[in-house]
Lab assay of single mutants.
Amino acid sequence: GSKLPPGWEKRMSRSSGRVYYFNHITNASQWERPSG
């Protein structure tokens, strides 16, 4: 298991139950796992 880039964390969408990734530094969110 590799770590996520700085700022990123795994989140669960309440509406759909899907996992997404959220960056608390930039407030960005995306479905794809961030690389870096």
Rank of each mutant, 00 (worst) to 15 (best):
E9Q: 07
Q30T: 03
P6S: 07
Y21L: 00
L4I: 04
H24D: 06
T26M: 05
S16Q: 09
V19F: 12
M12P: 05
L4F: 03
S13R: 06
P6M: 09
V19Q: 08
S16R: 06
W8I: 00
I25M: 09
Y20D: 05
S13G: 06
P5G: 05
R11D: 01
R14D: 10
N23T: 01
L4K: 08
I25P: 02
E32P: 07
I25F: 11
Q30M: 06
K10H: 05
E32S: 06
R18G: 07
W31M: 08
T26G: 01
Q30S: 07
G36L: 12
G7R: 02
E9K: 05
F22K: 04
S2V: 11
W8G: 00
R11P: 01
S2P: 13
R14Q: 11
M12R: 13
S29T: 14
Q30Y: 05
V19Y: 13
V19K: 03
Y21T: 00
P5I: 02
S35W: 10
P5E: 05
Y21P: 04
G7Q: 04
R33L: 12
R33W: 13
R33V: 13
W31Q: 05
R18D: 08
Y20L: 02
S13L: 12
G7I: 02
R11N: 03
R18W: 05
E9V: 12
W31D: 08
S13E: 14
K3G: 14
V19E: 13
W8Y: 01
E9P: 00
T26L: 04
N27S: 09
G1T: 12
S35N: 12
T26Q: 04
P5Y: 02
M12E: 09
S16T: 14
S13D: 15
P5V: 02
G36Q: 11
K3E: 15
A28H: 14
N27Y: 07
W8V: 00
S35K: 09
L4E: 04
S13K: 04
S2I: 13
P34N: 01
N23E: 02
N23C: 08
T26F: 05
W31V: 08
M12C: 14
P34W: 03
S29F: 15
S29H: 13
G7D: 04
S16N: 10
Y21K: 00
S29P: 03
S29I: 15
Y20E: 06
H24T: 15
Y20G: 01
A28P: 01
N27I: 04
N27K: 15
V19M: 08
S35V: 13
K3W: 12
K10L: 13
P5D: 03
W8N: 00
E32H: 10
T26E: 04
E32M: 06
R18I: 09
R33G: 04
F22Y: 15
R11A: 05
R11G: 03
P5M: 04
W31H: 06
I25Q: 09
A28Q: 15
P6R: 07
Y21N: 00
E9T: 10
I25T: 07
G1K: 11
I25D: 09
S15P: 09
I25K: 06
G17K: 09
K3D: 15
G17R: 06
N27G: 15
E9C: 12
I25S: 06
G17Y: 03
H24E: 09
S13H: 15
I25L: 10
R18N: 07
P6A: 10
L4Q: 02
G36T: 11
Y20M: 01
L4P: 15
S15N: 11
S2F: 10
I25E: 10
N27E: 06
P6F: 11
L4W: 03
G1H: 11
G36F: 13
T26D: 04
R18E: 11
S16W: 05
N23M: 01
Y21E: 01
F22R: 02
H24I: 15
R11E: 02
K10N: 02
S2K: 10
M12Q: 10
F22D: 03
V19R: 03
S2N: 13
P34H: 00
R33D: 12
I25W: 08
G17H: 08
E32G: 07
R11Y: 07
S29K: 12
G7N: 06
K10M: 15
N23Y: 02
P5L: 04
S2G: 14
S2L: 11
S35A: 11
F22Q: 02
R14T: 13
P34E: 02
A28M: 15
P6E: 11
I25R: 07
I25N: 08
P5R: 02
Q30N: 03
S29A: 14
A28F: 07
Y20H: 04
S13A: 10
Y20A: 01
S2T: 13
T26A: 03
H24M: 12
E9M: 06
N27M: 12
I25Y: 11
F22W: 09
S29E: 07
G36A: 13
W31F: 10
G1Y: 03
L4N: 01
R18K: 12
Y21S: 00
E32R: 05
A28Y: 10
M12I: 15
R11V: 06
